[in-house]
């Protein structure tokens, strides 16, 4: 079952074929930064050519609706949810067929129970695949912005974790409470970003946009690096980006 949370109605709804932020709604603290996603989606729409669905979709574990949203966020401030085997198997198939999962650990604690639980869960779903820190040259850090520092509400780890499959990384795990940096309303943000303050918040938005852009474009930016070689004799460059 999927539900739609109220968000900013900027564009007319055109069904979920466009990018939509979908979040796993499990029993427990599934949405610790309640206004973060909507605010972030607004930022995506403002800064990029992506025209996201303004509504935030929630996916109940085990719901077939998961397959209508190729992007899924799992967030939490306590322990990682215990999913039954049917729900877990559904997530495994979802990832194998092209779905993308972003896990945001909102605890702000190194090696928290939430992070350990997420690593154990995906480790058991994909035996033999490693969840490891992403190297600084990963496409994620250059899919839209050039990212050199890994931000969030807190800087628990100076890198993101990921799990590779073929030539992409369909699972990204952030330990820095990225959504915590976005949470707030028109009157201001809910949390301070530590230790970098507003610069760190801006970097968090950039990182978030890079994550969504990576989910949508994969290794596009890496391929682009080779295009000058492919398009020999490239001379003047015209037009917009």
């Amino acid at each position: 079952m999927a539900a739609i949370l109220p968000g900013r109605a900027v564009l007319a709804a055109s069904g979920p074929t466009r990018f939509a932020w979908a979040q796993l709604k499990y029993a427990g603290s599934w949405n610790p930064n309640t206004r973060a996603a909507a605010r972030f989606v607004e930022m995506i729409e403002r800064r990029t050519s992506i025209e996201p669905m303004p509504e935030i979709a929630t996916i109940v574990p085990g719901s077939e609706a998961l397959f209508e949203y190729p992007f899924l966020c799992i967030s939490g401030r306590a322990v990682f949810p215990r999913l039954d085997s049917a729900a877990a198997d559904m997530i495994r198939r979802y990832v194998e067929r092209g779905g993308f999962v972003f896990v945001d650990d909102s605890t702000g604690i190194p090696d928290s129970g939430f992070f350990e639980g997420a690593a154990a869960f995906f480790g058991s779903l994909f035996p033999g695949r490693k969840i490891s820190p992403l190297q600084s040259d990963h496409t994620l850090y250059q899919s839209f912005y050039l990212i050199r520092e890994i931000p969030g509400r807190k800087v628990v780890r100076p890198f993101m974790f990921g799990m590779d499959m073929d030539d992409t990384t369909p699972l990204i795990i952030c330990q820095n409470d990225l959504l915590g940096a976005f949470d707030g309303d028109a009157s201001g943000y809910t949390h301070q970003c530590e230790p970098g303050g507003e610069r760190q918040r801006e970097m968090s938005f950039r990182m978030g946009i890079n994550i969504v852009m990576y989910a949508l474009t994969g290794n596009y930016k890496k391929e682009q690096a080779h295009i000058p070689f492919i398009l020999k004799r490239r001379k003047g460059i015209q037009g917009a980006p």
Binding site: R46, T48, S143, L146, R206, K235, I237, Q238, G239, P241
Partner: peptide
């Protein structure tokens, strides 16, 4: 779209329309 970030902090390249 809004451009709040200097170009050198973005990974965007111009669209090589002439070449393509």
């Amino acid at each position: 779209d809004m451009t709040l970030v200097p170009q050198n902090e973005m990974s965007l390249i111009p669209f090589p329309t002439k070449e393509l």
